[in-house]
Amino acid sequence: MQISNIALDGAPLQVDALNFGPYVGVVHIPILDPLFGDGNVLGEVQYAVAYSESTVADQGLVSYTKNTGLDTSNQVVDNRNLQTSKIVEFVGFDTGRAVSSESLVVDGAGEFGLAESQFICPFAADQIDLTPEYCNIVEMGSDVDMTLMSLVTDSSERHIAASSDVPVAADYDIKVTGFGDIPAMGSASAFIDTHLQEGRTAYVMTIPIHVLDEDYSVDLYSVGKGEDVVYSEMSTASGEITLFQKAMSYQSGVRRV
């Protein structure tokens, strides 16, 4: 699933402002409103979300239940755009085997924008004039290869909201057990990979402009990268597994919940 607030695949990202080098100018000149949006600074945002799941169970007793929901409307804090849940129970015969893999990717990039036009909360805009540029990607998922197991996974993500008050979020949970006193047998792993690049903005000055007996202005800001974080982690277990359980969460936004 891919989505943009301006033009999908219209690289590079668009923004209604003067962009030159390490500075950006927010223009307040009515005659140039069609070009620069009356100083509203609408920065383009693009997101891509990918989900995949594959389960193969052979030569054994298997129970498989899967629920998937996708909602492309604006979501509030407690809701998600994509949500999945899966329950797999397997008891293999002599050569029986169940293999299951799952992956969720949330990839987003955005230009800077005027904070007061993006937030419902008035105090959020008081803390920052421009929301910075960003380019973030996160992937999380699991792999299991078992001869006996009870497997439960849940994944969800949110990247569409009416305002920037609602942060982007992604979650993935996995639980592997046996049956009663009999442990699960085989191998299980769960992972998360992220690369987060966040920008930083700072007010520099306001440049006055006098045209045809009218006073206008351009607000000048410095922009650039302020953070670059790469994080990867994997948990694994093999053999007789009494319990393998992991929960992973990701949240990105000026306001957090």
Rank of each mutant, 00 (worst) to 15 (best):
N5P: 08
N5E: 06
N5H: 06
A7T: 14
G10W: 04
L13E: 08
Q14V: 06
V15G: 02
N19M: 11
F20A: 15
G21M: 09
G25R: 10
V27F: 02
H28D: 14
P30W: 01
L32N: 04
D38Y: 03
V41M: 05
V41S: 07
L42S: 09
G43F: 05
A48H: 10
A50G: 07
S52E: 10
A57I: 03
D58Y: 06
Q59T: 03
G60L: 03
G60R: 04
T65W: 00
G69P: 00
T72K: 07
D78R: 09
K86F: 04
I87G: 01
V91R: 08
G92N: 08
F93V: 05
G96K: 09
A98L: 14
S101D: 11
V106M: 10
V106C: 01
A109N: 09
A109L: 08
E111M: 12
E111Y: 01
Q118S: 11
F119W: 02
C121T: 15
C121R: 14
F123D: 10
A125M: 10
I128R: 09
D129E: 13
T131W: 11
C135H: 13
C135T: 13
M140S: 11
V144Q: 04
D145Q: 06
M146N: 01
L148H: 12
L151M: 10
S156M: 06
S156G: 14
I160N: 09
S163A: 11
S163N: 14
V166E: 06
A169M: 12
Y172N: 09
I174E: 01
V176R: 05
T177N: 10
G178W: 07
F179L: 10
F179A: 11
D181N: 13
I182S: 12
S189P: 02
S189E: 15
I192S: 07
T194F: 01
H195R: 14
L196P: 00
L196D: 15
T201D: 06
A202Q: 10
M205I: 07
P208F: 07
H210D: 12
V211F: 11
D213K: 06
D213W: 01
E214V: 07
Y216V: 01
G224H: 05
K225L: 13
V230L: 05
E233T: 08
A237N: 09
G239P: 05
E240Q: 14
T242H: 04
L243N: 12
F244Y: 12
M248R: 12
Y250F: 15
S252P: 00
S252G: 01
